[in-house]
């Protein structure tokens, strides 16, 4: 569904498509790792380490 849809629209031929998809996956991973996760992480309570009155 989603992935075949993307695959069909990727440019390049027999070698271009795998290369393109690798670049795309890499870009998504970097975006998640350096932008999305640090933002999300601050909103999650898993690393509360202080004692406070609340």
């Amino acid at each position: 569904m989603i992935f075949p849809w993307i695959w069909e629209r990727l440019p390049g031929g027999r070698f271009g498509k795998p290369l393109c998809s690798a670049l795309l996956i890499g870009a998504v991973v970097l975006l998640l790792w350096f932008v999305v996760f640090p933002l999300v992480d601050g909103l999650l309570p898993f690393d509360d380490v202080t004692v406070d009155g609340r």
Binding site: M1, L32, D47
Partner: peptide, 22 residues
């Protein structure tokens, strides 16, 4: 199915971030 697989992969990546990335 595809959405769930994708969500699963993203969660695994987030777990890696929480342990190593931070």
């Amino acid at each position: 199915g595809e959405l769930m697989l994708t969500a699963g992969l993203v969660l695994v990546l987030f777990a890696a971030y929480a342990t190593y990335g931070k």
